[in-house]
């Protein structure tokens, strides 16, 4: 069975809505992964400010799914960003966001056809979106989805698994 590589080329997280049970664990693990302590208990006991999750969780009747940045091949957010804050990582090809350069102009929100960029007002106004867990190396939402509804695929549509 050929599997996608974790290292090269664009990856995206997709959701198979038929498998999604609506538990929203993906959001909780996303928030935890992007927090300072990365400690789920501290975070949800309110011991530190919660970051925004990189996920828009959509739900209507029996249908639910998690939606996050697609790391588009031809990403309109990169073209619209007046701050030079959105950039493509030259190696992993992820679309990443530099908070320091961001001016909160919301041009990216205007052009992202997936509507997956949030406006973060916690400190200065900045855009906020999924970074595919750049620090951890593997997306927390994928790793923690109990029903494998959220999966990672490469640019050829092949599933990518966590190594080891």
């Amino acid at each position: 069975m050929r599997r996608g590589s974790l290292v090269e080329g664009i990856k995206r997280v997709i959701v198979r809505e038929e498998y999604c049970m609506g538990c929203r664990l993906c959001e909780i693990h996303c928030i935890t992964q992007h927090s300072k302590s990365k400690n789920i208990l501290k975070l949800f006991k309110g011991e530190e400010p919660k970051p925004l999750s990189g996920i828009y969780f959509e739900e209507r009747g029996p249908t639910s799914f998690a939606l996050q940045c697609r790391h588009c091949d031809d990403a309109p957010c990169l073209e619209a960003c007046i701050g030079g804050a959105m950039y493509r990582d030259p190696i992993t090809k992820r679309v990443l966001h530099n908070r320091e350069k961001c001016v909160g102009c919301w041009m990216c929100i205007m052009v992202c056809p997936y509507g997956v960029i949030k406006a973060d007002h916690s400190e200065k106004k900045v855009a906020s979106k999924c970074d595919l867990c750049i620090e951890a190396g593997f997306p927390a939402c994928v790793e923690n989805c109990p029903n494998e509804a959220v999966i990672l695929i490469d640019q050829y549509g092949r599933r990518v698994l966590k190594e080891g």
Partner: peptide, 12 residues
Amino acid sequence: RKHMIVGEVIET
């Protein structure tokens, strides 16, 4: 929706 958010998945 599926075209947009899932796209082409060859093998899952």
